[in-house]
C-alpha cells in the first residue's frame, strides 16, 4: 500500500480538503465524500451566542468519528494567537494533537509570516502537538520548520484562494529533495492539472479548499481532484521519460515504409 504517513498515522488518501466557502453543510459533505479525503480542515471561531439549539453544526456533518479533523489557525497574525487557537482546538476535539499551523503576515495577500510561524511551531511542538505547517516556498525556512519537529511542511503553490496553480515548481522540488517529512502543497491549486503537477513533482499530498468549493460543481471537482492526485502520484512513482529537447524520436518503426529505400 502506498500510504501517506504523517507523524504516527497513515492515510490512504493523499488529498486533504477544507470545509470553507461552501453554500451549506450538505454541499460540504457531498463534496468531501466525493473527494474521498480522510483529513479535513476546520477553523476555530467564537460561537454565535443566542443561537437556536437545533441549528446544525459543522461537526454534525463532518464527524470526527469518520474523518481526521485538522483544526487550522487561519486568520491568526501572530504566534501567540495561533498557539492559543490550537490549544482551544485540542480541548474542543478531546485531546486531538494533529493541527495545521498558519500564521499570516498580510491580510491582502494572506502571505505567511515565517518568523512568527517558527515561534509558534516551536511552542506547539514543545507542547506535544503534531504540527503540519503552512509556509512560503522558501527551502531554508522549510528545513528549519522540519528541524523544529513539525510533522509535515506545507508550502504554498500560489496565494490562498487564488487558484493560480504551481508558480514555482523549482522551489517545491528543492523543498521536496531536502525534506525527510511529507511535503504537502497547500494553497493555490485551481484545477485538477495543478494537483497533478504537484504530485508529479513528488509532493506527498495536496491540500485544497477553494478549488473545490468555488467550482461550478463542487462535487464533480472533488472527484476530479481525487483522480488528479491519484494520477499525479502514479506518474511520479512510475518515473517520467527523459525530456529530449530539440530532438524528436519516432514512436513507430522507421523500417518497412511502403515507399522506403531497401
Amino acid at each position: 500500500m502506498d500510504n501517506l504517513k504523517i507523524g504516527n498515522s497513515e492515510y490512504s488518501s493523499r488529498l486533504i480538503v477544507g470545509t470553507g466557502k461552501y453554500k451549506n453543510f450538505e454541499q460540504t459533505k457531498t463534496a468531501i465524500l466525493a473527494s474521498q479525503a480522510e483529513i479535513v480542515t476546520v477553523a476555530i471561531r467564537r460561537t454565535n451566542l443566542g443561537q437556536n439549539p437545533s441549528e446544525p453544526n459543522l461537526l454534525d456533518f463532518i464527524s470526527p468519528k469518520e474523518f481526521t479533523i485538522l483544526p487550522n489557525t487561519a486568520g491568526c497574525y501572530n504566534a501567540e494567537d495561533a498557539v492559543r487557537t490550537l490549544r482551544l482546538a485540542r480541548e474542543l476535539l478531546d485531546g486531538h494533537t494533529l493541527v495545521k499551523l498558519e500564521v499570516l503576515g498580510d491580510p491582502k495577500t494572506l502571505f505567511p509570516d515565517v518568523s512568527e510561524t517558527i515561534l509558534a511551531a516551536t511552542e506547539l511542538v514543545k507542547d506535544g502537538f503534531e504540527v503540519m505547517v503552512y509556509t512560503s516556498d522558501d527551502p531554508i525556512i522549510a528545513k528549519k520548520l522540519e528541524d523544529i519537529g513539525c510533522v509535515a511542511i506545507m508550502p504554498l503553490a500560489s496565494l490562498i484562494g487564488s487558484g493560480m496553480g504551481i508558480l514555482n515548481p523549482w522551489n517545491l522540488e528543492i523543498i521536496i529533495a531536502n525534506s525527510d517529512i511529507p511535503v504537502i502543497v497547500d494553497a493555490g491549486v485551481g484545477t485538477a492539472s495543478d494537483a497533478v503537477i504537484a504530485m508529479e513533482l513528488g509532493c506527498d499530498a495536496v491540500l485544497m479548499n477553494t478549488a473545490i468549493a468555488h467550482a461550478q460543481n463542487p462535487e464533480k471537482m472533488a472527484s476530479a481532484m481525487r483522480l488528479a492526485v491519484l494520477s499525479g502520484r502514479q506518474a511520479f512513482l512510475a518515473g517520467r521519460m527523459k525530456k529530449n529537447i530539440y530532438s524528436a524520436s519516432p514512436s513507430s518503426p522507421e523500417d518497412g515504409l511502403i515507399a522506403g529505400k531497401t
Binding site: 477553523a43 451566542l49 459543522l58
Partner: peptide, 26 residues
C-alpha cells in the same frame, strides 16, 4: 477550562469568557 471543570468553575465579575466551535475553513 476543561469540560470536566464547568460545574466547579465559578464566574467572577470582570471575567472574559471565550467560547469557540469548529466552523468551515481551509
Amino acid at each position: 477550562i476543561p469540560r470536566s471543570e464547568y460545574t466547579k468553575t465559578l464566574i467572577k465579575s470582570g471575567d472574559s469568557i471565550e467560547i469557540v466551535a469548529a466552523v468551515g475553513g481551509g
